[in-house]
Amino acid sequence: MAAAAAAGAGPEMVRGQVFDVGPRYTNLSYIGEGAYGMVCSAYDNVNKVRVAIKKISPFEHQTYCQRTLREIKILLRFRHENIIGINDIIRAPTIEQMKDVYIVQDLMETDLYKLLKTQHLSNDHICYFLYQILRGLKYIHSANVLHRDLKPSNLLLNTTCDLKICDFGLARVADPDHDHTGFLTEYVATRWYRAPEIMLNSKGYTKSIDIWSVGCILAEMLSNRPIFPGKHYLDQLNHILGILGSPSQEDLNCIINLKARNYLLSLPHKNKVPWNRLFPNADSKALDLLDKMLTFNPHKRIEVEQALAHPYLEQYYDPSDEPIAEAPFKFDMELDDLPKEKLKELIFEETARFQPGYRS
């Protein structure tokens, strides 16, 4: 834990890192770190609560700039109880001085990944967590956004079992017609939660990839272990087919990539493993919904509104309290091709509203 900075004593240090967030945020305490930044909790002297502050230093890398800009653009436009918001952003007053960006968010005690390492969940908890994931996802999908990296560590939890989806750095506007060349190379989302079509096709992607990830998360809540822990690309596919069985001819016809289709045709026939054999203690309604989410063919996979209306979630289902976005989200430009200098300018502009004396 960093010592509390005395008023006016300059930035606090946390594990050798400068955290320049005073005077409003003090009493910093280390939480963890990701690929390009550290997260601390801090005391907000204005709202009198502890908050989470993520320090991001992305400006050396085009990919990190892209992810940072995506996350900020999306989260500043989203407003939903099951999606983490941005409360404040701290950065230098000029673009030349801006080396880091500090993002202030609600402090959540833990995440689903940490929880599943230590606790076996009751059916009631599984049901409530799944409902909140789908409630947040309904809003995301209504904005025409794909999260693309749903996994237990991106689901934040607090002691009252509130759940918030975080990390929109890989999110995209849904565009089933656009052929994202190089899709697989830039697709760094965790393999275990990846839909089979991501490994088999490169053309376009749809909201059904997020539903697949939610199915993987439900299976993990039922058993405290990942359902498809593939060691590499082909191993991942083999794990999936080992449980779902061989795809039907109709399902194979959806695979545009001939090499991928021929690979699947070359494999020995596998039978589907019954879900109640894998999860003998699970609620039968939970397994019915799991089956509809972990469907090989993305066109037959359940959609988020149908999933919310499934009998497993009937005690929570309330369409009048499951809000959607006001308007579909649009990125003005494809960020993939922009140089990091341009992305830095866009991050600077996007964060201006939090600067003292800002006038829109």
Rank of each mutant, 00 (worst) to 15 (best):
D44P: 08
K151V: 12
D337M: 03
V49E: 15
L267E: 02
M13Q: 07
A195I: 10
I31D: 11
H239V: 00
R24G: 08
Q66M: 13
I86R: 03
P274T: 14
I133K: 07
E12T: 03
M333H: 04
H125C: 08
I240N: 13
L121H: 03
I140L: 13
D332I: 11
G136W: 14
N123W: 03
G136N: 06
K138G: 08
Y233H: 14
L184V: 04
E33Y: 12
N271L: 02
A189Y: 01
F78T: 07
D106C: 01
H147N: 13
L156I: 01
E197W: 01
S320M: 11
L278I: 11
L69W: 00
L313Y: 01
I165S: 01
P23H: 14
D337P: 03
L134S: 10
F354E: 11
V14W: 04
Y25A: 00
G204T: 09
K272D: 02
V49W: 10
I198R: 08
L267T: 05
Y64D: 13
A260L: 02
V173M: 11
K73Y: 12
E326M: 05
T159A: 10
I133H: 03
Y25F: 14
H120N: 14
I83K: 05
L313K: 07
K48G: 11
I255L: 08
D336K: 11
A327M: 04
I227K: 07
R194W: 08
D124P: 08
K73F: 09
A35S: 15
Y36K: 14
R301W: 03
K48H: 13
H80W: 01
K285V: 12
R91A: 01
R77Q: 12
I72M: 10
D44W: 02
L343W: 02
T159L: 04
R148G: 07
N45F: 10
F279H: 05
T190C: 01
N45L: 12
M38W: 10
M199I: 14
C65V: 14
E326R: 00
K48Q: 13
K285E: 12
R135W: 00
I126E: 10
K99D: 03
G85V: 14
I240P: 07
P247M: 04
N281K: 13
K114E: 00
A286F: 03
G182V: 15
L252A: 07
Y263N: 15
T63E: 10
D337W: 05
P176K: 06
L170C: 05
H120M: 14
L200P: 05
Y128M: 03
T94G: 05
T159K: 09
G85E: 06
E96W: 03
P298D: 01
M38I: 15
K292T: 10
K151P: 00
M98Y: 09
Y102M: 06
A3Q: 08
Q119E: 11
R70E: 09
V46I: 13
L264V: 07
K231P: 04
T68K: 11
L278A: 11
L157N: 10
